[in-house]
Simulated assay, not measured.
Amino acid sequence: MTGLRKEFPRISVKTLCGLFGMTPQAYYKKKKTLVSRRQIQDTMLSFVQYYRSKDPGIGGLKLYNELCSVYGSGLIGGRDAFLNLLRSRHLMLPPKKPRHTTDSN
C-alpha cells in the first residue's frame, strides 16, 4: 500500500484503500505502528551494539536485564521479543561448548 502511495501520489488514500477493502483509518494506524516499531527496534539494536562494544561476551539475557535496569522495561518490551530480535539479526552469541574432565572412576 505504501508503495502504491509513492507510485501514484495524485490518487487519494481513500481511493487506494477502497481497492484493497480497507479504510483510510486502518492504513494510517498501520503506518504509524510500523514506523514506531522499527524505530524502537533500531534504538534497541544501537544499545546492543554499544554494550557489546564494551563487553563482547555479554549474553542475551544479561543484556536484556541490563537494558531494562537502565532504560526501563517500557522501552525494551518483553524478554522473548527482545531475544527473538537478537536472533533475527544474528546477534546472539554461540552457545558455550561443554567441557569434559577426566573421570577417574
Results as ranks from 00 to 15, higher is better:
M1P: 02
M1C: 05
M1A: 07
T2C: 05
T2H: 09
T2S: 06
G3P: 01
L4A: 08
L4F: 11
R5L: 07
R5T: 04
R5Q: 09
K6W: 11
E7D: 06
F8D: 10
F8Y: 11
P9G: 03
R10H: 14
R10K: 15
I11G: 04
I11V: 12
S12V: 06
S12K: 10
S12P: 04
V13P: 00
L16C: 06
C17T: 00
C17I: 01
G18W: 02
G18T: 04
G18D: 04
L19S: 13
F20T: 11
M22F: 12
T23P: 02
T23I: 06
Q25F: 12
Q25I: 10
Y27F: 10
Y27M: 03
Y28K: 01
K29P: 04
K30E: 09
K30M: 08
V35S: 12
V35C: 05
S36L: 14
R38E: 15
R38N: 15
Q41C: 06
Q41Y: 04
T43P: 04
L45D: 02
S46R: 14
F47W: 07
F47I: 05
F47R: 02
Q49W: 07
Y50K: 14
R52G: 00
R52N: 00
S53E: 13
S53P: 05
K54H: 13
D55M: 09
P56D: 05
G57E: 14
G57V: 10
I58F: 01
I58V: 09
G60I: 02
K62H: 12
L63V: 01
Y64E: 00
Y64I: 02
Y64Q: 03
N65E: 09
N65K: 12
N65G: 04
N65S: 12
N65C: 08
E66G: 05
E66R: 12
E66F: 11
C68I: 04
S69A: 12
S69R: 14
V70E: 15
V70Y: 12
V70I: 12
V70T: 12
S73T: 11
S73A: 14
G74R: 13
L75W: 04
L75P: 03
L75R: 10
I76T: 01
G78T: 06
G78M: 04
G78P: 01
A81E: 08
L83A: 04
L83M: 05
L83H: 01
L85P: 00
L85M: 08
L85I: 03
R87W: 06
R87F: 08
S88C: 10
R89A: 06
R89K: 14
H90A: 08
H90R: 06
M92E: 11
L93F: 03
P94Q: 07
P94Y: 02
P94R: 05
K96W: 01
K96Q: 07
K96L: 10
K97E: 14
R99Y: 10
R99P: 01
H100K: 13
T101R: 14
T101I: 07
T102H: 12
T102I: 13
D103Y: 08
S104W: 14
S104M: 07
N105F: 09
N105I: 08
